[in-house]
């Protein structure tokens, strides 16, 4: 493993009852890169993120974060190490204000977070500006519309000051203009030194964001490489077309 590898997965496997959702997946993430993770519905992308964030435990395989095994660590301990994620099925704190939602990330997060509540709140406020939620600060999370909920997921994860950010379809359901905004935000996040794994169905966004792409299909990694090469790979095209035909 090279010195600037931040995350390495070796033979990760996850089964639900009979279904193999993730099968012998191995890959490495270099510090500072954006890795796109794509694949048809049900390919195992979300499951892979859950294995990394620790909300699911693999039946086999090894996960190394900054060179040490994190297999036995519960989710909160991985958060303290610097792994942050968003949820595809968003999980806001419904009856808390947008500001409080994000403050939780700042209070806990990397290294256990900023323990002072008012300082954490200030950090959260800055992130609301960054993600374009400044006009929603005092609204309850359950009053937000879809696009703003996506922004909130992103702001909550960012507030944790993660070293590695796992984004699960933060652009689903957004308009073209909104997608362009989020793409810019993600690029800025990377420029601030955060490594990003991004799951996305919006190909335009994936192409413009990713340094590299990994493709999952039926839980198996069927391709890995530069965006243009991977997206032109016959097996990748077939995986997607096969899905469309079904």
């Amino acid at each position: 493993m090279s010195a600037d590898t931040i995350l390495e997965a070796q033979g990760l496997t996850m089964r639900f009852l009979g279904l193999v959702a993730v099968n012998q997946v191995s890959f490495a993430l270099a510090r500072g890169e954006i890795l796109g993770l794509i694949g048809p519905n049900g390919a195992g992308k979300t499951t892979l993120i859950s294995l990394i964030s620790g909300t699911l435990l693999p039946v086999a395989g090894e996960l190394l974060f900054e060179g040490r095994s994190i297999n036995g660590l519960p989710p909160h301990a991985r958060a303290h190490l610097g792994i942050g994620r968003t949820f595809q099925v968003m999980k806001p704190f419904p009856r808390l204000s947008v500001l409080e939602n994000v403050t939780v990330g700042a209070l806990f997060g990397f290294g256990g977070g900023e323990h002072n509540r008012s300082k954490a709140r200030e950090q959260a406020r800055a992130l609301l500006d960054f993600t374009g939620l400044q006009h929603r600060v005092d609204q309850h999370a359950d009053e937000l519309g879809g696009p703003d909920r996506k922004r909130l997921e992103l702001a909550k994860a960012l507030a944790m000051k993660p070293k590695l950010l796992l984004l699960d379809e933060v652009m689903a359901g957004l308009t073209h203009a909104e997608i362009d905004e989020v793409v810019e935000i993600i690029k800025k996040i990377r420029d601030s030194g955060i490594t990003i794994l991004v799951i996305e169905h919006v190909m335009r966004a994936i192409r413009s964001l990713s340094d590299r792409i990994v493709v999952l299909h039926h839980g198996e990694m069927i391709a890995e490489g530069m965006p243009d090469a991977v997206l032109a790979d016959p097996r990748v095209i077939e995986a997607y077309l096969g899905k469309r035909r079904a």
Binding site: S53, G54, T55, P74, P75, H76, R78, A79, H80, G84, R85, F87, K91, P92, F93, V104, G105, F108, G109, F110, G112, G113, K156, A157, M160
Partner: peptide
Amino acid sequence: DAAQVMGV
């Protein structure tokens, strides 16, 4: 779920 992945 959100609380624990955020570090609680």
